[in-house]
Structures are given as C-alpha cells and as structure tokens.
C-alpha cells in the first residue's frame, strides 16, 4: 500500500516533468510519419492518457488493471492504439507509447526514493509490472485491430468473388478467381444453384482459370458443386484447366473422370452450345 501511495504521489507531484520527458522519449522513438501523426497529436494523446491514468491510480489499484477504476484508461489506450494501428504503425512503434514512459519514471523514482535502500526496488518493481501490463494490453489491442481489418477484408472478398454470368439462353458461367476454401465454395455453390433455378439453365460452366492452385480439397469442393448441380438437373462443365493444374491433379489422384472438363472457356461454351442445340456460324462477310 505504501508503495502504491508513493507512486501515486510521485505521478501527481512530478506531472509536468514526467509528461515532458515522456513526450520527448516518444518523439525520439516514434518516427513521425509524414502527415500521419503530428507532434501535436502525440502531445494530446499523451496528456489525455496521463490524466486518465492518474485518475485510475488514485483508486489505489496498481496491480489489477481489469478493475472498474481502469476501465476508462484502458478504453483511451485502446482508442490510441487503434488509430495508430490503422495508420500503419508497427507493433513496436505502437507499444512504444507505453514503454517510453519507463525511462523518465525510473529516473524519477531513483532520484526521489534513492536515499532509502529498500524503497526504490519496490517502487521500481510496482512501476515495471504496471507498465508491462499496459504495454501488453497495447499489443493485444493492436492484434485485435489487425484481426478486425482482416475479417472485414475477408467479407469483402467473399462478396466480390461470386459473379454468375449468363452466357446464353440456358447457359451460365461462373468464373472463379482466387483460392477456394470451404466457406467460399459454400457461397459459390449456393449462388450457382440458385441462379440455375432462377434462369432455368441446363448447363453451367465453372471456369477455374483464376484459381492459382487446385489441391485435393479444392477438387473435392468442385466435385460437390458439380454433383449438386447434376442433382438439380443441370450439367456442369469445368473449364480453364491449365497444363500445370492438369498435371498436379492427376498426380494427386483426382481425374474428374465423371465430369465434363475443357481446357478453355471457349471450348466449354462450344460444348454447352452442342448440348443445348445452339448452332453458331460465322456471318459471310460482304465483299
């Protein structure tokens, strides 16, 4: 308790010195990205946080930062971290916000309690534990923000990735681009089947020119889609199989033997025309 009081007093007494030194430390370490983070913003963030921080430690709790006293401070820290993460700061640069308080604080503790042999050790330990916890919180918050960004981008990709194109009367095409995973395949399958019902198409072409690699899992997903379409009464053609993919698939033991496959989308469309009884001829050119 004494240690806590000592620290609380210290933060209050030397507010100006600590703040100045802390900001100076930060500015030395954080590269001020052009137009991203100004010196003014650093000062603003630091002062805001310092005020909230002081309020929190006055509650007397310096060990457990999960308590109610800390809620506001952590929220503020969260916001600061989030905005810096979005600006493209590295984890180190983000965590520096907290860790750069260490040096000014330790110097101050040494100066203030240095006379007593026992005290500085205790104070230093308490301060280290506290700042480390806050630093780790920053790291967690950083990762959480990054994960949010990844999740949002995944969703955006999912929406982008499933255009079902009507090529001709009763012929649909589905150009697939990017890696196929289970979730994407599910979406692709559902969209394709719904479109088959809606347009009453009897042939669907799945073009995998844009799929970089086809492994056994992707092949299985494709076969499931083809089987489902067949169950509904539509024939599926897989096209856009590149030479390398044909090789690697046969090596993997996937031969697509009961599925119609074509090398290019044009071949697939020709096959689909034959299936639906469409004849295409070149118009004779007028001389």
């Amino acid at each position: 308790m004494d240690t806590n009081n000592n620290l609380t007093e210290l933060f209050k007494k030397y507010e100006q010195e600590l703040l100045t030194d802390w900001i100076k430390e930060q500015l030395a370490v954080i590269p001020l990205h052009e137009n991203l983070l100004t010196e003014f913003e650093v000062k603003q963030d630091t002062t805001d946080f310092y005020n909230a921080f002081q309020l929190a430690i006055q509650g007397g709790e310096l060990v457990d930062i999960k308590g109610a006293h800390w809620e506001k401070t952590l929220q503020l820290l969260d916001n600061i971290t989030k905005s810096r993460t979005r600006l493209g700061f590295t984890p180190t640069e983000t965590a520096t916000f907290i860790f750069s308080l260490k040096q000014p604080l330790f110097t101050l503790i040494q100066k203030e309690f240095g006379r007593d042999v026992n005290t500085p050790g205790k104070e230093l330990w308490a301060a280290t534990v506290l700042l480390d916890k806050l630093g780790l919180y920053t790291a967690e918050s950083y990762i959480k923000t990054k994960e949010e960004i990844i999740r949002r981008q995944q969703n955006e990709m999912l929406e982008l990735s499933t255009p079902v194109v009507k090529v001709w009367d009763k012929i649909l095409a589905l150009p697939l681009i990017g890696t196929l995973d289970s979730i994407r395949t599910q979406v692709v399958m559902e969209t394709l089947l719904q479109e088959i019902v809606r347009t009453e198409s009897s042939v669907a072409i799945i073009d995998i020119t844009g799929v970089p690699t086809v492994d056994t899992l992707v092949a299985q997903h494709l076969m499931k889609t083809v089987s489902a379409a067949r169950l509904m009464g539509a024939e599926c053609i897989i096209s856009g199989i590149r030479p390398q993919i044909a090789q690697s698939m046969v090596h993997l033991g996937v031969t697509f033997s009961d599925i119609t496959t074509r090398a290019t989308l044009a071949d697939a469309i020709r096959h689909a025309f034959a299936q639906t009884g469409v004849k295409v001829s070149r118009a004779s050119r007028q001389v």
Partner: peptide
C-alpha cells in the same frame, strides 16, 4: 427422372 430439386436439398444430398 428426378426433377425440380431445390438448391438446399441438392447441397444436403451431396453433403
């Protein structure tokens, strides 16, 4: 000849 299978049913059958 089985006709008019719903998409959801087709997916279930394949699964």
């Amino acid at each position: 000849v089985v006709v008019g299978m719903q998409p959801a049913v087709a997916i279930t059958m394949v699964e």
